[in-house]
């Protein structure tokens, strides 16, 4: 199988390059990640992140033939050869497919991603109806792979000011949780020309999310709450 892969090692390379590989795959190499592991057997200088190999840890997000995806749940048969693999766009590159995700996590941290509730907790669990719990579906499943934020032009231009689709999805996850009593603070935290409102509903985020989540929908719900609060 033929690949063209972005390579850059600051220790040894003066500039990045695309490297071609033509590697025979074993019948058991069904996912793109299997193929990358096979390439690394031939060339141990090739670096990428990976862990769970089943689409839940979010390590192996990369740009495959122009689209951000998780290598471990992308079948080799569903991508066209030569498979062009680049690091996630818009983030500083550390080496090969490994990007510096500090800015992405900083934005995630900025939305205070934890349930806040001033009431002392009861002896047993806080009660929540199944319907209220269902509000969290499509939100809490995010794996922080950054496929969405690094596919978002608004995040490319303002990664320091725009929270980005992943962070905003999480912001709404806590707004939507009936156990959290800081909705107003959370909306205040996003009331700014950039943090939320840089989203122009381009919807790349929803298009690329490997978990089929829809950050744009979450962002729209936050906007609705802001409008409702204003009137």
């Amino acid at each position: 199988m033929r690949f063209s892969i972005y390579r850059y090692n600051p220790d040894t390379d003066s500039k990045p390059r695309m490297q071609d590989y033509d590697i025979p795959l074993e019948p058991t190499d069904r996912m793109l990640l299997d193929a990358l592991v096979r390439i690394k057997e031939h060339d141990d200088t090739f670096s990428f992140r990976r862990s769970c190999r089943e689409g839940v840890c979010g390590s192996d997000a990369m740009n495959v033939n122009g689209k951000n995806r998780l290598a471990c749940i992308t079948k080799v048969t569903e991508v066209k050869e030569p498979i062009v693999i680049r690091p996630l766009p818009g983030l500083p590159i550390i080496r090969d497919l490994i990007v510096d995700m500090s800015q992405f996590f900083k934005q995630y941290h900025s939305i205070k991603p934890y349930v806040q509730n001033d009431d002392p907790p009861p002896e047993r669990e806080r009660l929540q109806s199944p319907d209220d719990r269902e509000e969290l579906n499509g939100l809490y499943e995010c794996i922080l792979c950054a496929c969405c934020s690094t596919a978002c032009p608004s995040f490319w231009w303002n990664p320091d000011k725009f929270v980005g689709p992943a962070g905003l999805l999480w912001a709404y996850r806590f707004i939507a949780d009936t156990r959290d009593d800081k909705i107003n603070d959370r909306l205040d935290n996003l009331e700014d020309p950039y943090r939320l409102f840089r989203c122009h509903s381009i919807m790349n985020c929803a298009d690329v999310c490997p978990k089929n989540l829809n950050p744009t929908a979450a962002i729209n719900k936050i906007r609705d709450l802001m409008v409702k609060r204003a009137i």
Partner: peptide, 19 residues
């Protein structure tokens, strides 16, 4: 487990609101 729920763990719920 109750502590984890207080931390914000999104457990599924029974009709009575419990875990």
């Amino acid at each position: 487990v109750v502590e984890l729920e207080h931390f914000g763990m999104p457990f599924d719920r029974l009709d009575n609101g419990k875990i």
